[in-house]
């Protein structure tokens, strides 16, 4: 099966591992991720303003590209996924917004929200299936106590994202079980890390990140997984605690036996 893939700016730079392992694991699981030609950055954060049009055009172009190919649009970064999905939702439900976008893009492009937008985790759950992944695991992470860190962007706003129960999600815990490890469920797993405010207010990010790490450590987590480069940055940089945080795709690659020899959670290598 082929899907359209939107990597996003960070997966081409600071979070190359997130990209490399996502592609490699997808191949093992029978899915080819076809990178969208000439994709443009999603902007990292979705504006809920109804009159904010231009900043959403890059997402609409990616959505329209996938529609033309009749493929699912997949991303791995939580932020890209959030922006793409919220933009798609606006194209489906806000007629005025959709009209203005299409007027601007005509005659080259017309789009009305046809594309199905999926995060890579949803691809694993809904297309591949966690049972199938379990069968493909050659190197189960038995005995590892892993905390899922959802942050805010994967789940919220729940009405739009529709990935999972916003207050009691389980998709990442199910993923952790599928690769043979033991999920640690802790209360702060869907609270914000401090996001972009870290650029001008480190104290705020230190407070929010430390609250997450302290809570996860108290629950017995030895390792956290995330799908978001900014979450990972904040937790590692500002969390004030030596708890490793890795991308979920690295663990998947390790379990499937396609991780580069120099890496792996056993060496605590965070890329």
């Amino acid at each position: 099966m082929k899907v359209s893939y939107f990597p996003g700016c960070t997966l081409k730079n600071k979070a190359k591992d997130l990209d490399t392992y996502a592609r490699r694991c997808a191949e093992v699981l029978g899915i080819t991720m076809e990178e969208i030609e000439n994709w443009q950055c999603c902007g990292g954060v979705f504006s809920t303003a109804k009159d904010e049009i231009a900043s959403k055009l890059s997402s609409v172009r990616a959505l329209a590209y996938a529609a033309e190919k009749e493929q699912i649009l997949v991303s791995v970064c939580s932020a890209c996924h959030n922006v793409l999905k919220q933009t798609n939702h606006a194209m489906q439900n806000d007629a005025d917004f959709a009209l203005r976008v299409n007027n601007y893009c005509a005659p080259d492009m017309a789009y009305h929200g046809e594309t199905q937008v999926m995060h890579y985790l949803e691809l694993l759950r809904d297309v591949v299936g966690f049972d199938k992944i379990r069968e493909k695991v050659v190197n189960p992470l038995t005995g590892k106590k892993i905390g899922a860190y959802y942050g805010c962007l994967l789940l919220r706003p729940g009405k739009t994202m529709q990935m999972d129960d916003v207050e009691n999600p389980r998709i990442m815990e199910d993923f952790i079980r599928a690769i043979g490890a033991e999920p640690v469920v802790y209360a702060m797993r869907n609270e914000c890390c401090g996001g972009y405010v870290t650029l001008e207010d480190k104290n705020l990010a230190a407070k929010t990140s430390a609250a997450v790490l302290d809570n996860a450590a108290a629950g017995g987590a030895e390792l956290l997984v995330t799908a978001c480069p900014l979450c990972r940055y904040n937790l590692v940089k500002n969390g004030g605690r030596d708890l490793p945080v890795v991308y979920f795709t690295e663990l998947l690659a390790e379990a499937l036996g396609v991780l580069d020899a120099t890496q792996g959670v056993k060496e605590e290598n965070n890329g």
Partner: peptide, 14 residues
């Protein structure tokens, strides 16, 4: 270590 995502998000918000 700063991810590009941080910079584009901050520019968008600020």
């Amino acid at each position: 270590d700063m991810p590009q995502q941080l910079l584009v998000s901050a520019l968008r918000k600020y």
